[in-house]
Design a protein around this nucleic acid. Structure first.
Length: 855
RNA sequence: GCGAAAGUGGCGGAAUUGGCAGACGCGCUGGACUUAGGAUCCAGUGGCUUAAUCGCCGUGGGGGUUCGAGUCCCCCCUUUCGCACCA
């Protein structure tokens, strides 16, 4: 019977599903392992690129399960978000309908891949049973002052008609639609993540099993910097302006001050400036600059003198106060002391506007540079010594910083300060398809949270989708009109919904008890099962999702709901799958759908002619016509082949280019495995005595178990598959010789089925059953290698002369060094190279090589 | 500009601690079998040279350490990713 993947695959998918093999009773004891694939946005169709993530996870799940762990592997849906709403506007389908049908499609897809999830734990963030707890958590945070409302300039995407978090703005553009983001002043809801900045930064040190890259990105994003706030008196105002600096030791070199044009004191400082109007015009111009323009290095610095002065508290000199577009209002105090000799930005600004420089730090032991000779600032924080700096003169910079901060504090003009780049998390979205923020605006009582017993605030389903500006929710009178929970008077309900990153920042805890209608989760069970032992997902979530999840976990910790602060113990980022696509130079480099590509003499052209097409390998995406849908592959080769190919293609963390041709290799491999089963069944009951061939195959068996196991443990799935192919080839050779022992062949073949099961689960289950096993292979125990039986008794010794390979021979694995070296010297191939030479040194690496050094 | 990772056959990639470079697979070449397939099986396949061996060269480039370097050190080049006025 030939290998017919179609039939056996649907058979086993049904059996696994019916027997609920992947379900875990979280209340039962056992060695727990919680693994999790980042829950997906239900966009509908999956392509083979998405498969990598899920197939990898399923292989791990089956492996760990066979290892005897109690493995929780749930799946759910990050189901709120803009695409559903856009689909509603475009096609008139309700976001809920669109989402529900996409979920059904994706579940079928997972099943067709043979992927097992504990579906009893399924959740969708758009269900009120889930988002109710978003609202509950929001209210807890509101009570603690961690959720607050503030007017602030926000990033507004005119195309998506909503505000964006800083994290969703990339190079001044909307992360989603790439439209340029503009600044708008709006009242918005924020979560006070900055309060946790220090803990989030410090916690990174413990995450040793996260990719270094991700930790680094988080650290940069949090942007912790240690320095001091220092007050500079402003005679004209009769009060001080505070600056933040990380180099308080350079304060004697502060020759001017620069404020952000948005700084609140600017108006007073320029009040009697003769060119006030011109300066105000310039300020408006800077404010209207997009972040992109303002922060672009190429556009150069812009500045204006305010006409006012500040007093340097250490030199007591009056220094000019400037305005500069490079000073950001959101960071620090929006004001800096400028030390052009020791800060490159200040240096450039000073050169541009002819402001003075003063050297106050010099290389230790070296001459003090002359200010007028400087071609760049000297910013070394470690190797410098203060000069011309009053009481700190002569101190090395790190000491000087401590000393000056002490002095600043003693004089009461400032203090040591730690600041962060991280800003509070803006969660308001003027969109419909999200969690309603559970707040009521009452004219008498102000902001009133919806009482817990009135949760959830249900998202109304009957809503008009017009695509015009504004949140559709605001037009639903029955939703907006609410009675104040405090005084009962008619009040207005908040119509903003939450950023969907709120949904995904604690779902991993809900998975353990997804249907609990009485509380967010059961702390006892969550504390037993969490943190997540292995989290798997794309590196695109390196900052946003992972930082928010770490933040919310700490909030849950402080609410005494969980005992841990880090939600994910190990993190794995799988690489992207790419595919070659074609672009047409004759059509403005548009991507060309594959059916329209024609090869003539091996050169690709558009069907309708024009210039030769340009091949480009890129992430699979519908807009580039380079997606490979799995259906056809499964139809032709089966899901097992696609799974094995997907894991074989490259190391799982690397980017990998999908090759339509290469997959045939895995199909051949599985066909061979299938045929070995048939050959074994056809063997004579007991055809021979166990001899050398049997011992050799047994040795291969134990080597394969050891090799495959350690490679899966290290996530080297590609080489684990290579090792199985080698082992499979060894079985093939054994069977091809004929006349072997059926018992040995069966035993070795069954081991192959077990090792291969995480990768090709259907085929292996089928043969496990055919060979008479009662239980399912997925529930069998992972084989254990016997290191003694895996040892080779004969080894190949390589002989080198002066490091060059000159010969080789076989030796007993246990042979003595003397004997091996003697044989090496005596061997025919080596002898000519020794003739007339003296051996000055002999290097022997046990079981590997002999290197003879001659003169 | 700063930081990180990576450069190995025609292609994807392999090579615990420095120890036979190219495992495993795709492709390619030759052959077998044919009920002619989107097959299957066998053999070969880094380059130069050769009838074949031998030999020489070979892991982005250059230098170094070592008996021995894809692996360690220094310099350079290229690619990818992240950050990019955060005081």
């Amino acid at each position: 019977m030939p290998y017919e993947p179609k039939e056996i695959e649907s058979k086993w998918q049904k059996l696994w599903s019916e027997s609920r093999v992947a379900e875990v009773d979280v209340t039962k004891p056992g060695e727990k392992y919680y693994m999790l694939n980042m829950f997906p946005y239900p966009s509908g169709d999956l392509h083979v690129g998405h498969g990598r993530n899920y197939i990898l996870g399923d292989a791990l799940f089956r492996y760990l399960r066979m290892k005897g762990l109690s493995v929780l592997n749930p799946m759910g849906w990050d189901a709120f978000g803009l695409p559903a709403e856009n689909a509603a506007i475009k096609r008139g389908t309700h976001p809920r309908e669109w989402t529900v049908s996409n979920i059904a499609r994706m579940k079928r897809q997972f099943e067709a891949w043979g992927i097992l999830y504990d579906w009893s734990k399924e959740l969708a963030s758009c269900d009120s049973g889930y988002y109710r707890w978003n609202q509950w958590l929001f209210i807890r945070m509101f009570e603690k002052g961690l959720a607050y409302r503030a007017k602030s300039p926000v990033n507004w995407c005119p195309s998506c008609q909503t505000v964006l978090a800083n994290e969703q703005v990339r190079e001044g553009r909307c992360e989603r639609c790439a439209h340029e983001v503009v600044q708008k002043e709006l009242e918005q809801w924020f979560l006070r993540i900055t309060e946790y900045a220090d803990r989030l930064d410090a916690g990174l040190d413990q995450l040793t099993e996260w990719p270094e890259q991700v930790r680094l990105q988080q650290r940069n994003w949090i942007g912790r910097s240690v320095g001091a706030d220092v007050q500079f008196e402003i005679p004209k105002l009769g009060r001080a302006i505070t600056v933040f600096t990380t180099r308080p030791d350079t304060i004697y070199g502060a020759t001017f001050m620069v404020l952000a044009p948005e700084h609140p004191d600017v108006a007073a400082l320029i009040a009697d400036h003769p060119d006030r109007a011109a300066i105000e015009t310039w300020i408006t111009h800077v404010r209207n600059q997009s972040n992109l323009e303002r922060q672009a290095e190429t556009s150069g610095k812009e500045g204006r003198f305010t006409g006012s002065h500040a007093v340097n508290p250490f030199t007591n000199e009056e220094i000019p106060i400037w305005l500069g577009n490079f000073v950001l209002p959101q960071y620090g105090t929006g004001a800096i002391m400028s030390v052009p000799a020791h800060d490159q930005r200040d240096f450039e600004f000073a050169k541009q506007f002819g402001l003075p420089l003063r050297v106050v730090v010099a290389p230790a032991g070296g001459p003090v540079p002359v200010a007028s000779d400087l071609e760049a600032s000297w910013t070394d924080k470690e190797g410098g010594v203060s000069v011309d700096s009053g009481s700190i003169t002569g101190l090395p910079s790190p000491r000087a910083i401590e000393a000056i901060v002490e002095e600043i504090e003693a004089r009461g003009i400032g203090r040591g300060m730690v600041r962060y780049r991280l800003r509070d998390w803006l969660i308001s979205r003027q969109r419909y398809w999200g969690t309603p923020i559970p707040i009521i605006y009452c004219e008498a009582c102000g902001l009133v949270p919806v009482p817990d017993d009135q949760l959830p605030v249900q998202l109304p389903l009957d809503v008009p989708f017009t695509g015009r500006e504004g949140n559709p929710l605001a037009k639903v009178k029955s939703f907006v009109e609410a009675s104040c929970p405090k005084c009962g008077k008619l009040a207005r309900r908040e119509t903003d919904t939450m950023d969907t990153f709120v949904d995904s920042s604690w779902y991993f805890a809900r998975f353990v008890t997804p249907n609990d209608a009485t509380r967010i989760f059961d702390p006892a069970i969550v504390n037993r099962w969490l943190p997540v032992d292995q989290y798997i997902g794309g590196v695109e979530h390196a900052i946003l999702h992972l930082l928010y999840a770490r933040f919310i976990t700490r909030v849950l910790h402080d609410l005494e709901l969980v005992t841990f602060e880090e939600p994910f113990r190990r993190l794995f980022n799988q690489g992207m799958i790419t595919k070659e696509g074609f672009r047409d130079p004759s059509r403005n480099m548009a991507w060309v759908p594959l059916p329209e590509v024609e090869h003539r003499d091996g050169i690709p052209y558009h069907r309708t002619g024009g210039q030769p097409l340009v091949a480009e390998t890129a992430k699979m995406s519908k807009s580039q016509f380079n997606v490979v849908p799995p259906d056809e592959l499964i139809e032709r080769f089966g899901a097992d082949t696609e799974r094995v190919y997907t894991l074989f293609i490259a190391p799982p963390q690397d980017e990998a280019a999908w090759d339509d041709q290469a997959i045939i290799g895995q199909y051949r491999f599985l066909n061979r495995v299938w045929s070995y089963g048939e050959k074994i069944v056809a063997m004579a009951a007991e055809s021979s005595e166990a001899g050398a061939a049997e011992a050799k195959l047994q040795r291969r068996r134990h080597q394969a178990i050891a090799g495959v196991t350690s490679r899966i443990d290290r996530f080297n799935f590609n080489t684990a598959i290579s090792a199985m192919m080698e082992y499979s080839n060894a079985i093939g050779e054994y069977l091809a010789q004929g006349g072997g022992s059926r018992a040995t062949a069966t035993e070795c073949y069954e081991t192959l089925l077990q090792l291969l099961h995480p990768f090709a689960p259907h085929l292996t289950e089928e043969w496990w059953e055919k060979l008479g096993h009662e239980g399912m292979l997925v529930s069998s125990s992972w084989p254990v290698a016997d290191t003694e039986l895996a040892k080779e008794d004969v080894v190949t010794i390589v002989v080198q002369v002066n490091g060059k390979l000159r010969g080789e021979f076989e030796a007993d694995a246990g042979a003595e060094e003397n004997a091996v070296v003697a044989e090496a010297k005596a061997s025919a191939k080596v002898a000519p190279y020794l003739e007339g030479k003296t051996i000055v040194k002999t290097i022997y690496v046990a079981g590997r090589l002999v290197n003879l050094v001659v003169k």
